[in-house]
């Protein structure tokens, strides 16, 4: 699966297994992600997608197996891991700008660097105008954009996204997905994007990992080699979407 354009593997997941008591949730999962790659993960409902992300982000300890970032075991204190959650995670007592800065502040970046990066990122996502507002003064979609900006701001080794746009309407979703792809291309982060929306997965990612029902393993891997910006009416797009849909069909 290595091709010439991909310099090296950034993330290596080796035999990752997670059980809750007797319940086996993640069953011996192995895969790797190249540096700067955008991988989407889709799977049937309740297949353990969130457990998968929580284990990858080290929020949950793995029962066995390991996650390597640049060849060393993943550690949130050493590596830059970002996680965009399904629900908005803005700190209500911080302004938009201070919220986006939060990840960088935790990492102890110098103030000057933080400010420069903030100016750059807020400008890219068009949040400059409301930089000094508090989260309760802006819409839910903007709150999610703050979380996305905050995640990109730390220059992540691994950016995990758990259905970040699941609660938004379709039109806004496409807009924010374009914005996400734009951020990813400019900032060259490695992204793992979980979604149950297959169209979304095909729209944003370079490769799709299809998960099976519990106990979860990787059932298939689909390359999405389409030019951007993508057109979801394009026959090739539709073919890939239907192919992935068939793969996770449980009815």
């Amino acid at each position: 699966m290595q091709n010439a354009a991909r310099p090296r593997n950034k993330i290596e997941v080796c035999n990752l297994t997670k059980r809750f008591g007797e319940l086996l949730v993640l069953n011996d999962i192995s895969f790797s992600v190249a540096e700067g790659e955008f991988v989407a993960i889709v799977g049937p409902t309740g297949c353990g997608k969130t457990t998968f992300l929580n284990t990858l982000s080290c929020l949950l300890p793995a029962s066995s197996g390991q996650i390597l970032i640049d060849g060393t075991p993943a550690n949130p204190k050493r590596h830059n891991i970002s996680y965009v959650f399904q629900e908005p995670t803005c700190l209500p007592w911080r302004t938009v700008r201070e919220n986006v800065a939060y990840g960088m502040e935790v990492k102890g970046r110098p103030r000057k660097e933080i400010d420069e990066r903030l100016d750059h990122i807020l400008d890219m996502v068009g949040l400059t105008q409301c930089a000094n507002l508090y989260p309760n003064q802006i819409s839910a979609s903007m709150q999610q954009r703050i979380a996305v900006s905050r995640a990109f701001a730390v220059d992540p080794d691994l950016l995990l996204m758990d259905e970040p746009y699941g609660q938004l309407d379709v039109k806004l979703r496409f807009y924010l997905e374009d914005e996400l792809v734009n951020l990813w291309r400019k900032l060259k982060s490695t992204v793992l994007f979980i979604t149950h929306n297959i169209e979304e997965a095909v729209y944003v990612s370079e490769r799709i990992l299809v998960l099976s029902n519990k106990p979860t393993r990787i059932k298939a891997e689909v390359k999405v080699d389409l030019p951007r910006p993508r057109d979801f009416m394009d026959p090739e797009f539709v073919r890939i979407r239907e192919h992935v849909t068939d793969l996770i069909r449980w009815w």
Binding site: P76, F85, K107
Partner: peptide, 20 residues
């Protein structure tokens, strides 16, 4: 969720206590 968010950024217990 805010605590989880801070943890993924590598925040220490003391940072989470003070900042969140």
């Amino acid at each position: 969720t805010l605590i989880q968010m801070a943890r993924t950024y590598g925040a220490s217990d003391w940072q989470i206590f003070r900042q969140l």
